[in-house]
Simulated assay, not measured.
Amino acid sequence: AAALARQGEVATEAVPPLPPCEAIGATGADAGRYVNPVCGMSIEIAKALHVVEYAGRKVYFCCDCCKAEFERAPERYLAAASQRSD
C-alpha cells in the first residue's frame, strides 16, 4: 500500500505538464521555431525530425502524420498558413 501514491500526487509530481500547443499563442515568436501548417504546433527547427522541402523551402512537422497530410495537399496547407500569419 505504501508503494501506491495518492491520485493527486501522481498527477502533479510524476507527470510534468507538457502542453505543446500553448506556445502557439505566445507573443513574440521565438527565433529557430516554425509553426506546423497542418496542426499549428510550434516546432523547434534544430530538433525537427519530420521535414519536407517544398517549393524551395523547408516545412517542419511535429509528427509523421502531419507530414503525410501536408504531402497530400501542400498548397492547401501553405495557403491556410499564410492567411493565419496575415
Rank of each mutant, 00 (worst) to 15 (best):
A1C: 07
A2T: 13
A2P: 11
A3L: 14
A3Y: 12
A3C: 10
L4N: 12
L4A: 12
L4R: 12
A5G: 11
R6P: 09
Q7M: 10
Q7S: 13
Q7K: 14
G8W: 12
G8F: 14
E9I: 01
V10E: 03
A11C: 04
A11M: 09
A11I: 11
T12C: 08
T12P: 01
T12I: 06
T12F: 05
E13A: 07
V15R: 06
V15A: 04
V15S: 05
V15W: 08
P16T: 07
P16S: 06
P17A: 12
P17W: 08
P17K: 10
P17T: 11
P17N: 12
L18Y: 10
L18M: 13
P19K: 04
P19Q: 04
P19Y: 03
P20T: 00
C21M: 15
C21I: 15
E22D: 14
A23L: 11
G25F: 05
A26Q: 08
A26F: 01
A26G: 00
T27P: 14
T27L: 13
T27R: 14
G28L: 02
G28P: 07
A29Y: 08
A29G: 14
D30N: 10
A31Q: 11
G32A: 03
R33S: 15
Y34V: 01
Y34T: 04
V35H: 00
V35A: 09
N36S: 11
P37S: 05
P37K: 07
P37N: 08
P37F: 06
V38W: 02
C39R: 07
C39W: 05
C39Y: 06
G40D: 00
G40L: 06
M41Q: 14
S42E: 15
S42P: 09
I43N: 00
E44H: 11
I45P: 03
I45V: 14
A46S: 09
K47I: 01
K47L: 07
K47C: 04
A48D: 00
A48W: 01
A48Q: 04
A48I: 07
A48E: 02
L49T: 13
H50P: 06
V51F: 00
V51N: 01
V52Q: 11
V52Y: 07
E53M: 01
E53A: 03
E53N: 09
Y54M: 01
Y54N: 10
A55D: 14
A55H: 09
G56A: 00
G56E: 04
K58F: 02
K58Y: 00
K58C: 04
K58M: 05
V59C: 05
V59R: 00
Y60I: 02
Y60G: 02
Y60K: 02
F61I: 05
F61T: 02
C62Y: 06
C63N: 09
C63S: 15
C63T: 05
C63L: 09
D64V: 12
D64P: 10
C65I: 15
C65F: 15
K67N: 07
K67P: 07
A68V: 04
A68K: 15
F70P: 00
E71C: 04
E71P: 01
R72F: 09
R72K: 15
A73S: 14
A73P: 08
A73I: 04
P74N: 06
E75D: 13
E75L: 10
R76D: 07
Y77H: 10
Y77F: 15
L78G: 08
L78Y: 07
L78K: 05
A81M: 07
A81P: 03
A81C: 02
Q83L: 13
Q83A: 11
R84E: 13
R84K: 11
S85N: 01
D86K: 13
